[in-house]
């Protein structure tokens, strides 16, 4: 085994993979949220459609999209491998377990991640597949903004999206600051900032995302 594979397959290396891929997904969320928030300008989706078209047609963005999917798949596969390996480290379970020593969401990252994945399948089907693999948007039949309005007209997707955003919030609440710890970034000067950043990020981004389907469903954005 080369030193690279040996390092990345160690317990510390696997956590490093989780942290690096996780932080790259955090960067993606920021861009995604920023662009989608253009709908709140309430200009009939004009600015949003322009931004969406740029993202769909720019060569560098499309290239980065491949990297994003690779990172996402690595995050999922590595997470599942860690989960199944960790489960075997305690063959006999405790009869009584006190839950006061840690938060429930820090212990449930796998469950929250699975909920996110289920949401993501639906989400990609709604918008990514339609805009990248059909000519509904590119052919000019309707804009991505109109597609959003159609999807969020019925209440079921709105509920699913809000539940997805709640899972995202708790996943980020532990994940962001945990990623910094895994790459070894823990310092009295910077850790309070990292933790505050992680918490605010985990609240603001999902709230802005969740506001989109709700506002569209209620007809606040036209």
């Amino acid at each position: 085994m080369s030193w690279v594979t040996k390092t990345l397959s160690s317990s510390l290396g696997r956590k490093l993979i989780m942290a690096v891929t996780g932080l790259s997904l955090v960067a993606f969320l920021l861009v995604h949220c920023g662009i989608n928030a253009c709908i709140f300008l309430n200009d009939g989706g004009e600015t949003f459609n322009e931004a969406a078209e740029f993202m769909a047609k720019n060569f560098f963005i499309r290239a980065a999209e491949i990297g994003l999917f690779a990172g996402l798949i690595l995050h999922i596969v590595d997470g599942l491998m860690l989960w199944s390996a960790n489960k075997k480290k305690r063959p006999v379970q405790y009869a009584v377990v006190s839950k006061e020593n840690s938060t429930w969401y820090s212990r449930s990252m796998g469950l929250l991640g699975t909920l996110l994945l289920l949401f993501l399948v639906m989400h990609l089907k709604h918008f990514w597949v339609v805009s990248r693999f059909t000519d509904v948007i590119t052919g000019g039949q309707k804009t991505l903004f109109q597609e959003m309005q159609e999807v969020f007209a019925s209440p079921i997707p709105v509920i699913v999206y809000v539940v997805g955003c709640i899972s995202l919030a708790y996943h980020l609440l532990h994940g962001v600051q945990s990623a910094f710890q895994s790459i070894g970034w823990n310092h009295p000067k910077y850790t309070p900032f990292v933790k505050a950043f992680g918490s605010w990020f985990a609240i603001i981004i999902p709230v802005v995302f969740a506001a989109m389907p709700i506002a569209m469903h209620l007809g606040l954005i036209k």
Binding site: N86, H174, Q181
Partner: peptide, 27 residues
């Protein structure tokens, strides 16, 4: 032994107050 999920349960239960900063240093 398993990998770390950074839940902080170890630090909370340690009778000697060993800090999670040590795990970051080990990384």
């Amino acid at each position: 032994f398993g990998a770390c999920t950074n839940t902080g349960a170890c630090e909370a239960e340690c009778p000697k107050g060993i800090s999670l900063e040590n795990i970051a240093r080990m990384n």
